[in-house]
Structure formats: C-alpha cells, structure tokens
Amino acid sequence: MAEVLVYVDHVDGAVRKPTLELLTLARRIGEPVAVALGNGAADTAAALAEHGAVKVLTHEAAEYADYLVVPKVDALQAAAEAVSPAAVLVPSSAEGKEIAARLALRLGSGVITDAVDLEAGDQGPVATQSVFAAAFTTKSRVSKGTPVITVKPNSAAVEPAPAAGAVEALSVSFSAAATGTKVTARTPRESTGRPELTEAAIVVSGGRGVNGEENFAIIEALADSLGAAVGASRAAVDAGWYPHTNQVGQTGKSVSPQLYIASGISGAIQHRAGMQTSKTIVAINKDAEAPIFDLVDYGVVGDLFDVVPQLTEEVKSRKG
C-alpha cells in the first residue's frame, strides 16, 4: 500500500490535534508515515502510533527553531525523496501552508491549501475546499507530481487506529537557504486555559456590539461556561478590545466548530468568510436586520448585555 507523509505539528513533543485529524484522512489514501522535527520529535511517536502512523521519521536540530520555514522544507523534501509517497499532508497553519508550497515547488508538484475534506480518487486524492467566503464548495486535485495538500483543523474526526509507529531517524542535510531568515527572539503566546480557536468544538465570539475591552468579560464568561474558545470580529480587534490572534474572518482565523455563537456581530462578508462553515450557528444582536441572522439556526434579537449573562447563568445551572 502506498505511503502518505504527514507533517507533524507539535510543541516540544506534544502533538497538536489537527495532526491527528490528518492521520484519519491519510488512512483513506494509504499508510501514514509521520515526519516529526525539532525538539521533542521522538516524543510524538506514541500519540502518532495510536492514531495510525506506521512509521515516525524524526530529526532534531537547532535549525528548526532558529530559522524560519526552510529547514522544515529541507527535511520534508528528504522524507519525500526517501519514501516516494502517494501524497504529503500538512496542517493548514500559516507556517504549514508556506512549508507545503515550497515543498511542492521543489518536488515539481502542485499544492492545494485549506482542504476541508479529502478522499481517494482515480487520479489521486480529491480535496474539498470552501471558497469565496464559503459561498462555494470545490473539488480539486493535484495534476502534476506528488500531491501536497494542507488541511484545515476540524476537517476530520480523531480516530484511534493503533499501528506500529516505528521511530526511524531521518537523514537531513540543510540547504544553503535554510539559514536565510533568523529567528532572533521568540515569545510563546500566553495560555488562556481555553481551547485553541481553530480547534475548538464551540466558539463564542464578540463584535462591535460588545462595545469595549472590559465588556469582553461577559463573552469570556459564556465561553468558559461552555468550555469554548473566544473569538472576535475585525471591528472588535481593530478597536483594540481583543487580540488579533483571536480574530475570526478573512484576515484572521477561519473556524468550523460544532457550535458558533456570535454576539454583537453584524455578519459582514469579512466575518462570514471565517465562520460560515460552522455546523450550528447562533447569534445575539440588537438589530433584527443584521445579515448574521441569515445564517443562524437560532437567533435572539435583543441586547447582548441582557441575553448573554442570562444564557451563561442558565448554561451553568443546567450543567449543575
């Protein structure tokens, strides 16, 4: 059976959830071979084996943390040349897309980004994408070379599928370009204790209607009652009320949770682009004409300062 390379996104050996989702998709195409790089690479093996990786290729070197993107491209290229895979799958983070694109160019291949589903096809893997602010769904494939495809978080379920997960050292020689862009400082983002925005099952977002940084506390309180991540519209981020890392929309994160709750968000195309594929959508807005109500499964026309705290209390009491 053909092998499929899966690039592992991990933090010091802790595998992030989108990589486990990729293993689910990779098994539809062939046998997953994971590639884990940098500090803690070998520590990823147990989690990867549990979810279907037949092999885990690892390489640790300071270059992966000290220089931008290219060392990882060098390693993935070495893995692709060693394995001759049927496809290479990479999580669709900003960095993942850059790695995938450069790798595709080196392999003489095409690249597809931001797939939301993947299936085997007669002419290679078929990727489903959601385009034009999720107004259209396309099916595409790579028509030249080894398909390189990045997949968005929440595109597949994480499924246990125990496999050997044999750890093998990957041999990598870095290119001259590898040390081109130096990372001179790195400040890890402080953990909020909440789920990662793109990975969360529930997202609670606030917009212009939240009307101030201090008022985001009621959005956070609702999020915490549901175990949700917190998002913000561009209007709220531009006003300085919430960090850009939490922005949902075309220039921020694109999310596809089971439940999306929009509070005080009108639903401009910019925002819809980032949340329209959510399974269940709920909105609270004062303006009955707000376009967000065209998308909702349930909407409340009302003042979010009344509705949201009442909802939070009710959720808490129902959860006991």
Binding site: F293, V296, V300, V301, G302, D303, V307, V308, E314
Partner: peptide, 12 residues
C-alpha cells in the same frame, strides 16, 4: 432558523 425577540427570557 428560528429567530426570537428577547422579551426578558431570550437567554433562557
């Protein structure tokens, strides 16, 4: 979807 007007019970 269902759209309701908040008459004091919207959150519930």
């Amino acid at each position: 979807g269902t759209i309701v007007k908040d008459e004091g019970e919207g959150g519930k």
